[in-house]
């Protein structure tokens, strides 16, 4: 059994190492890592639902909402602070999920997946038709301030990296704690047997509703950070292929740990970047082949590489 010092110290060391690496790595790699961390939050949100047996094919809804909330926060409300934009993205995504959750938590399996997809496509349709929001072109965002400091150029990119890594680290830690609590672990129990959960005295729909809102808030955070990082927003953020990509990365990652989505997201971004660089017309084939190999050889996702294997028992 790991001691508490290792359990707390190791993630913190990794986080410090990541922050330090952010200052040392080349700009292109820092950007890819930043995007991987932001999208990793969305994959983390999917992991939360998948542990409860729900697969959402519409997480682009909250990714897009988080991004647009941050973008409109800058352009309409004149909010310039990055943390405030992040909070806005989280709040809008969470609020919409709270409303939709009353309907969606009634459904399971393919019905939940398709209904979540339908809602994301409604948002996509609205955004595409809305000329005030830039229609299919979207709109740009200026660089925000960080805790009141206005950075520019490389300093701004470093500040954004530190912010994104900190949010990802905090979200992973909080979610880890939550998943180990009674309410958090209820997801596994619901996935296994809803009837038993109700007959133990817990509300299945209530528990799923909480998870759905938390999941949306995480995806909204990912969207807001992506918007701030790229400085541009367009309806593709809510398109079904974006949602599909998150599911793809969630399967690639595995659901064994809160660190898995970030690892999977980084691996995916690297594969895509190199595949696109070396084979611009067939990069999807490389990504697809990778997925095939992972499913065949690592059904538990990339995280299964880090799981301790049971020791072989030898007979004396």
């Amino acid at each position: 059994m790991r001691g508490p010092a290792v359990a707390i110290g190791l993630p913190f060391l990794l986080f410090c190492g990541l922050i330090a690496a952010g200052f040392l790595m080349p700009g292109w790699l820092r950007f890819i890592t930043l995007i991987a961390l932001a999208k990793g939050l969305v994959v983390l949100s999917l992991m939360l639902l998948m542990r409860a047996g729900l697969v959402s094919f519409g997480q682009g809804l909250y990714y897009g909402l988080g991004a647009y909330a941050a973008g409109l926060g800058v352009n309409l409300l004149k909010v310039t602070e990055a943390l405030a934009l992040l909070a806005l993205g989280v709040a809008v995504a969470g609020a919409v999920a709270w409303v939709l959750g009353f309907l969606l938590t009634r459904y399971r399996e393919i019905f939940f997946a398709m209904l979540s997809l339908a809602f994301s496509m409604i948002l996509y349709g609205l955004l595409v038709k809305s000329s005030a929001l830039g229609s299919t072109d979207g709109f740009n965002l200026p660089t925000p301030t960080f805790l009141g400091f206005a950075f520019a150029g490389t300093a701004a990119r470093h500040a954004l990296f530190v912010l994104t890594a900190s949010v990802a680290f905090a979200a992973a830690l909080l979610l880890h704690r939550y998943l180990g609590s009674t309410r958090g672990y209820l997801g596994e129990a619901i996935r296994e047997n809803e009837i038993r959960v109700e007959y133990l005295g817990a509300s299945v729909r209530g528990a799923l509703h909480v998870k759905y809102v938390l999941s949306a808030a995480l995806a909204g955070a990912g969207g807001a950070l992506t918007a701030v990082a790229t400085g541009h927003i367009d309806p593709d953020l809510a398109y079904w292929t974006t949602s599909g990509e998150f599911v793809f990365v969630a399967i690639l990652s595995g659901t064994g740990s809160v660190a898995a989505p970030f690892l999977g997201s980084f691996v995916f971004e690297m594969i895509r970047t190199y595949a696109f660089a070396y084979s611009p017309n067939t990069w999807q084939m490389v990504v697809g082949a990778t997925m095939l190999l992972v499913i065949i050889f690592m059904p538990g996702g990339l995280w299964s590489l880090f799981r301790r294997r049971p020791r072989l028992v030898t007979r004396s």
């Binding site: 939550y178 180990g180 609590s181 009674t182 958090g184 209820l186 817990a202």
Partner: peptide, 13 residues
């Protein structure tokens, strides 16, 4: 589930 009416978010299972 049985130990409390309001399920804990933080108390470890």
């Amino acid at each position: 589930i049985a130990s409390s009416r309001r399920l804990g978010f933080w108390r470890a299972l």
